[in-house]
Design a binder for these strands. Structure first.
Lengths: 99, 99
DNA sequence: TAATTCACTTTGAATTTCAAAGTACTTTAC
DNA sequence: GTAAAGTACTTTGAAATTCAAAGTGAATTA
């Protein structure tokens, strides 16, 4: 009857990071602009959170040019997917106290 | 295709508060000591988070004596249940991007 | 009478979060 | 040809959050 909240990952206690990871669970690569628009964020706020996730090695970055314009995309790493999935399991377990 | 994370409630981005609310969704009244043990928290940490939830009017407090010992219990208010439930719906919606 | 229980409050430091502004380079519009 | 807009940041600094640790006070059991 222990470890009720211990398995919740601190990396995902923030809305923005939850949102980013959710998007990246569905779509392989999502670019900066799309994330920014979908999650309704400022540049700085998004940049800081992808940076945090990158430092945890939960996502990887690809920089390229589309035409002449820079384009930066993000993808969840295997580690990131695992961590997020574990977090969701922990959340579910928490709520399964209900049943 | 908007409001992906806007409906997530800031009050529940913290593990401890998630844990407290989860317990209170299942059990009408839960006392301080039980919460503390179940969630493996220090007195101060638990006290600060129940205080925050109380200030949001998400839970109510009942103080009584059991025998000669003080006993403090908490219960989710209707507002709290609604807020938590909405938060979970928002979480679900977020993850339903998947399907 | 000393230690323990219960439920806190206070303090202070560390961490986190965020808006705002700045950077740098490119491209499109006028 | 210059001004505005696009892309993807970084920096700065202030505010908010989080937490451990220690203190409080009243009662109780050893």
């Amino acid at each position: 009857m222990k470890k009720i909240i211990a398995n919740l990952n601190k990396a995902f206690d923030n809305k923005v990071r939850l949102g980013i990871m959710s998007m990246l669970m569905v779509n392989e690569w999502v670019d900066f602009k799309t994330l920014k628009e979908m999650l309704e964020l400022t540049d700085g706020r998004l940049a800081s959170h992808v940076k945090a996730l990158e430092e945890s090695e939960y996502l990887e970055i690809r920089k390229q040019f589309i035409g002449k314009r820079p384009n930066t995309s993000y993808k969840a790493t295997t580690l990131g997917r695992k961590a997020f999935s574990d977090h969701l399991d922990a959340l579910e377990a928490l709520l399964r106290l209900k049943g």
